[in-house]
Design a protein around this nucleic acid. Structure first.
Lengths: 226, 226
DNA sequence: TTCATAGTTAGATGCTAACCGAACTATCAA
DNA sequence: TTGATAGTTCGGTTAGCATCTAACTATGAA
């Protein structure tokens, strides 16, 4: 009985269409202002404000003031993971897909999950790193190996900076489309940043879709191979 | 905007206290009748009936008639996993725990997750199997190794029967208390059945808690070791 | 058949919560 | 100061939904 109460409390926060739209928008990883989220949810500012205070009060969001703006973001990875898992259920259950549609396919191939790469490309990357011994995978405990350290530093990542943070460097995140793990944690986030900086990928405006540029796709494949 | 709608639809199903209690009860793995679930949720039969038709209609539950009873169960593992992940968020967010409490600790040590063993003991078992090469773990893709086949058959499991079914033999399931993977799939379910048959463990009445008998605990530790 | 139990359907009720407009506060920019 | 933008708070309205009782259907047992 107690377990059900906790469950309902969190789920009902997500269960309102306006709030769900806000959360879905925040799955893009960027922090958004109250006004932007109001727009996203299709409600007026006062309504959005009420929703946002519920979400922050419930611990799903965190807020940072900046001047006269208030930026909202998902509280942590656990919340992002929960949302992904709900979306996963929704995706398999909603058999309303007459045909998948090109946007759907793009989402399956590569998308942003909070702040790291997910979808088939994300899973492929994770598998390749594991196979090459750059990551030591044991259950869902993942660690950087020595050769992994060298590889990622060569690739231009600042591992020292990551170690300073409280956030774990490596984490596994379960993919709703592929149902396999991909790489999250600060390493996952840094890799995606780097891909963007190298112009390998481009984020589609106002969506979670990530598109590989043609040269980016080649370089990415090369990186996984050798 | 579309993603949010799907999200809200599923989450709102879980977001009602009565329904959440039913789902929590079904996390125990057993199929329950409408009356039992009504009792569990603390509502009258008609109310429960309405909830149950929503849950089945929404794809979270499946129902089987049996004489004049109707047995309800979670639709699949994905739904169970989603519920676990919501519970995980609830557990870390709800800092209302003044002190953990003995029942809480028992849940953390060993509990049933749909139909297999979860909690610290579940994670320990998974790790031990992986370390001994009985399971080949690659990301969240898990396979039985040759030595694993021998081991589990010696332990009294009927692997041939499992292969016949559509359900995957091995699957990883993320643990909300320990945040590590443990073994799900038909192998995970069969192991738990076997533990019960061997009297190593006993399910606590009306809860998800699994208690190891003293000899069971010894035998279990031995099994992990050699 | 007749009775009992399991469950659904229908109808009525009442509460909660989402929503908006209007007024208020806070920050920035002249 | 004055004006503009960002956001919150307040009050009132509305709609949806969970809930119950009562009546109905279906299955099994005597």
């Amino acid at each position: 009985m107690k377990a059900g109460t906790d469950l309902a409390q969190i789920a009902s926060l997500v269960g309102d269409p306006a709030r769900a739209n806000m959360l879905a928008a925040l799955m893009g990883g960027a922090a958004l202002t109250a006004s932007e989220l109001a727009l996203e949810a299709g409600v007026t500012l006062p309504t959005a404000s009420a929703h946002l205070s519920k979400l922050t009060g419930g611990g799903l969001l965190r807020m940072a003031r900046q001047g006269r703006h208030r930026y909202y973001a998902l509280a942590d990875h656990q919340v992002a993971g929960m949302l992904e898992s709900i979306m996963g259920v929704a995706a398999t259950l909603g058999p309303k897909k007459v045909l998948p549609g090109p946007r759907d396919n793009a989402m399956r191939e590569a998308r942003i999950c909070y702040d790291h790469l997910a979808g088939e490309m994300g899973v492929a990357m994770f598998d390749a790193f594991a196979a090459r011994g750059l990551l030591a995978v044991n259950g869902s405990e993942i660690a950087l190996t020595e050769s992994g350290c060298g590889f990622f530093e060569d690739f231009g990542l600042d591992l020292a900076a990551m170690r300073g943070k409280r956030r774990p460097i490596c984490r596994a995140c379960l993919d709703w489309s592929v149902r396999r793990s991909h790489l999250a944690g600060s390493l996952g986030a840094a890799l995606l940043d780097r891909f963007v900086a190298l112009n390998w990928v481009r984020r589609e405006k106002d969506s979670r879709i990530i598109r590989f540029t043609p040269p980016g796709r080649r370089s990415f494949a090369l990186m996984l191979r050798d």
